[in-house]
Amino acid sequence: MEKERIDLRLIELVIAQDRKAQFQLFELTKRMVYSLAFRILNDEDIAHDVLQDTFVKVFQEIKNLKHPEALVSWMKTITARKAVEKAKRQLVFEKLSSAEDQSEDHFEAWFDGELLDQAIRSLPAGSRTVFMLVEVEGYPHQEVGRMLGISESTSKSQLNYAKKLLKTRIKTLLQA
């Protein structure tokens, strides 16, 4: 995405319902929106639905955006919430023992983005969603809990579980 191309004038035109400006904003941000949705959902079709739903909401609500410089963050928030909304029916949070939470293994190895992406996509849906919202998008556990309808401690334990699984899966993939 080219942030420098999303300027105040473009946002003003989008607010004014200028179709060309809306298309330009879509073109500049569609990869970011789709990528976030896909990483949370791990499903191309549903991620495309979220892409569409996100832009419908953006174009309907942009007139209420008080700080235009926060446009990208606002769009990411809409995307994350739409993806979680779509995924809620499918999310399963695995029961974790307290012993699993205490694992402290120092993992140091080189790997590329494709390997990491593959490992993240292989996580169980609930753990993957928490991982993406907390570690990638920066949401606090309290807000993730509210979004997903789980407790803050469940969010924390699911994140720890996701990290443990990622370590194991990356090690396995590196040995393959």
Rank of each mutant, 00 (worst) to 15 (best):
S151Y: 11
N64C: 01
L41P: 03
E94P: 01
R39A: 05
G149D: 09
D117E: 14
S153G: 00
Q90N: 10
G149F: 11
D43E: 15
G149Q: 08
F93M: 08
T54I: 04
S155G: 10
E61S: 14
E85S: 10
S122G: 08
H67P: 00
L41T: 06
L91K: 02
V50G: 04
F38N: 13
I40Q: 03
L148I: 04
Q142R: 10
S153C: 00
I46W: 02
D117T: 11
D45C: 08
Q142D: 09
L133F: 06
F93C: 05
T129W: 08
A80P: 07
M132S: 00
F55C: 06
A83Q: 01
I46L: 09
T54W: 02
D117M: 08
S97G: 13
G126A: 07
L41I: 08
A125G: 10
H48Y: 12
D117G: 09
V134S: 09
H48S: 14
W110N: 06
K95L: 13
I40W: 01
K66N: 14
V50T: 06
E114M: 08
E69L: 14
D45S: 14
A125M: 10
Q60F: 08
H141M: 09
K63N: 07
R146Y: 11
A99K: 09
M132H: 04
A109T: 03
T77H: 07
N64E: 14
I46T: 14
A47H: 08
M75P: 01
L91A: 11
D43L: 06
I150A: 04
L133M: 14
T154H: 05
R146S: 10
A87P: 00
V58C: 03
K88S: 11
E137F: 13
